[in-house]
Design a protein around this nucleic acid. Structure first.
Lengths: 207, 207
DNA sequence: AATTTCACCATACATATGTATGGTGAAATT
DNA sequence: AATTTCACCATACATATGTATGGTGAAATT
């Protein structure tokens, strides 16, 4: 993903995506320059030109904030957002393990919330399936029974959350999966957020 | 809804919402002025001030396009989008009938597609439930087996689409419901679009 | 060794942008 | 009858904004 972009170009593209997500609109050249501590906008201009040439965005000439993203679908993978969420603990995706998740986000969703792609069928009895995308709010605390995204030993899971006296239980919604029990102060355990919605792509193919 | 706003203020607010949906960012004062054929931006400025005073938006001073919407949730009801879709045939919602739908839209979704709220459980075997929101693309033609939104005698339905020789069949995904059979040239029948995704709000309550 | 790419810089410019101020006339309210 | 609100107008201004042009030095490529 993001093939062909240099490290700096990728950072700028990520910043644009993030600004769209958090501010609801793309940044101006000056805002990008300020963020990357460039002394002038011409540098940004040249980077944008390069990124555009590589096909990752489209510019609307003369229009302020006229940066359009041309990524596949409306889904992006904005590392920075995740960085904020899991602070120094970037979420690792184990591609072939059940229950791990991928972390994309959609162009415009509630501030600071983000999207997560579900792998595996441990939640199928709650009608959440492999490939579904769940929308996660990192700013609310989970109540018992809520679906939560949690980090466990460098892998991220979506499970139903139950807090007991000294333990936390993570339940699946599929009898084939056993519940996970962790002590509340386990350092390898971290709650990322609460699932507030799910999204599923339905059409098999566009012909 | 939109209580307290004058007709003109409401139109301006709707235009802002629509611009956010279609262009991915709010308009500038000049763009609003152009759309409403105002000779200068000061008029727009004063309207925005009034709309802000009534609590429907928040302005970020000095920032271009710095108009933030403060509406409940991220859901709006942008008449114009629907108008395009059902062209002169506004979708009627029968609140107590099974299978009818409501038509809201989300702040940022694929261009020209829109959202539809499902009522009834006729699609439950496809894991689409009462209250789910389906995302509809009006620009693709349905293939057999696609979920489609169709208008039938002034009521809108979400069903699986099958085209036979001279007939069109609309199937439910629930054995309790019979299929609907219409002749292809029935004037009271109209395909609105194809369901490309579903969205479900999951959290019961924020405490 | 020569050339290209990459990542910056400075400067300049037309125009876009938000904002401030003051004004007009009609309609609604007090 | 006096006042306020509403819906526009014109003009002015500082600064934001995208863009164009030309330049430097390091790294990568040919």
């Amino acid at each position: 993903m993001r093939a062909g972009l240099t490290k700096i170009q990728k950072n700028i593209l990520d910043f644009i995506i993030n600004t769209k997500v958090s501010a609801g609109m793309p940044p101006t050249l000056a805002e990008i320059a300020k963020h990357f501590k460039y002394k002038n906008r011409a540098t940004v201009q040249q980077h944008l030109k390069a990124i555009e040439r590589k096909g990752y965005l489209k510019r609307n000439p003369k229009i302020s904030r006229g940066i359009e993203l041309t990524l596949d679908e409306k889904f992006f993978i904005p590392k920075p957002v995740i960085g904020e969420v899991a602070a120094g603990n970037p979420i690792v995706v184990y591609p072939d393990t059940i229950d791990t998740i991928q972390l994309p986000t959609i162009a415009r969703i509630p501030k600071e919330s983000f999207l997560v792609k579900v792998k595996g069928n441990s939640l199928k009895d709650a009608y959440i399936f492999d490939g579904d995308i769940v929308i996660v709010d990192p700013n609310i605390l989970p109540n018992n029974g809520d679906f939560t995204v949690a980090i466990l030993d460098d892998s991220a899971v979506v499970k139903r959350f139950f807090k007991k006296k000294k333990l936390i239980e993570l339940h699946s919604e599929n009898p084939e999966y056993e519940k996970i029990v962790i002590s509340s102060n386990d350092e390898k355990f971290n709650i990322v957020g609460v699932v507030i919605g799910i999204y599923r792509s339905i059409r098999k193919k566009v012909i």
